[in-house]
Computed example of a mutant assay.
Amino acid sequence: MSMTINMPLGDLIDKSPKGEARFAHEEWLRTYVKRLTKGNKTKLKQALNEVDEAINQWRNGFFISTYDEKLSAVRQGKLNMDSQELEDIYNEETYLQKEGKTGLVADFLYDSIAQYGFINEHHRDAIESAWLFHDMEFLQQQWEYYALAQIRSLRAVIVSMLGTVPTTPETEPQNAKREPKRIEDYPEVFDITLYCELTNYAKDTIYKWTRTREIPCHRSGTNGRKLVFKRDEIVAWMTARKQETKDEFIKRMES
């Protein structure tokens, strides 16, 4: 839809996550913010706070829904859970829905990402693997990346005009410095998150390798949807891989 340069900031923020502001390229946004704030730093900071609050409110409007999947698994005899436990999950999700929150399921996230479009075949493989292994965290992360693309562009313009180092909303995870772990500190069996931490590979790379059977992995959990790795197998796999050259290491770290 066409947008006017006089549109109130609240309207633009509201339209962005809905995909209704997808034509607001950076130069348009820069002109818009200049007109809105006249370059005044106080107004720029107010605009930044309004954008960050909108991002946080949008994220808080969703939750991961598990009731239908667990109910189906119980009926198929693949999950041991009594009726009271199921009822507690149902009541909790019903309460969240009454608060206006939307329950996210894997199929919805996969379909939404597919509508935005895959970057390439490698990305498609990663998303399909995440859907297959029910990695809701990865799917939600990818979906948010697309859904918030425009509002993040608006935020970046405001930050650049403030002349400050880009910051992130308080609810976003921060990369805190941690003491490196020894191999022995990892459990004998762990999930893909710890695998990323151990090897420094990205999730989409790991999913690609699981599809091509380049790395040892196992399925567990409900319907075999959880992807797990055995520490000894991964150590042996890492040891067997050829030693990376300096250039290969730099390329992997940059990607």
Rank of each mutant, 00 (worst) to 15 (best):
110 Y>A: 06
249 F>E: 08
38 K>L: 09
152 R>Y: 11
22 R>M: 09
139 L>Q: 05
182 R>D: 14
68 D>I: 03
232 D>Q: 14
143 W>M: 07
75 R>H: 08
134 H>G: 01
219 R>K: 13
139 L>I: 08
67 Y>S: 06
142 Q>C: 10
253 M>S: 04
243 Q>S: 12
67 Y>P: 03
98 K>C: 03
151 I>G: 08
145 Y>H: 12
202 A>Q: 15
193 T>E: 14
230 K>T: 03
81 M>Y: 01
253 M>G: 00
12 L>D: 04
215 I>Y: 02
242 K>S: 13
43 K>H: 10
142 Q>K: 12
127 I>N: 04
108 F>Q: 12
8 P>C: 07
95 Y>K: 14
207 Y>S: 06
89 I>E: 13
142 Q>R: 14
131 W>Q: 12
145 Y>A: 13
153 S>Q: 14
129 S>Y: 00
166 P>Y: 04
66 T>H: 04
180 P>C: 06
92 E>D: 14
89 I>P: 05
219 R>Q: 14
39 G>I: 08
149 A>T: 05
125 D>V: 15
95 Y>G: 03
141 Q>L: 10
148 L>M: 11
101 K>A: 06
26 E>T: 15
191 D>Q: 12
2 S>G: 02
28 W>E: 02
123 H>S: 07
184 E>W: 01
104 L>P: 04
224 G>A: 09
191 D>C: 10
230 K>P: 00
207 Y>H: 10
147 A>N: 09
94 T>F: 09
115 Q>K: 15
80 N>G: 02
242 K>N: 11
23 F>S: 10
236 A>G: 03
124 R>Q: 15
214 E>T: 07
112 S>F: 00
249 F>Y: 12
7 M>W: 01
196 C>S: 15
127 I>G: 05
21 A>S: 12
8 P>D: 05
151 I>L: 04
166 P>A: 13
100 G>N: 05
178 R>A: 11
152 R>W: 07
143 W>R: 06
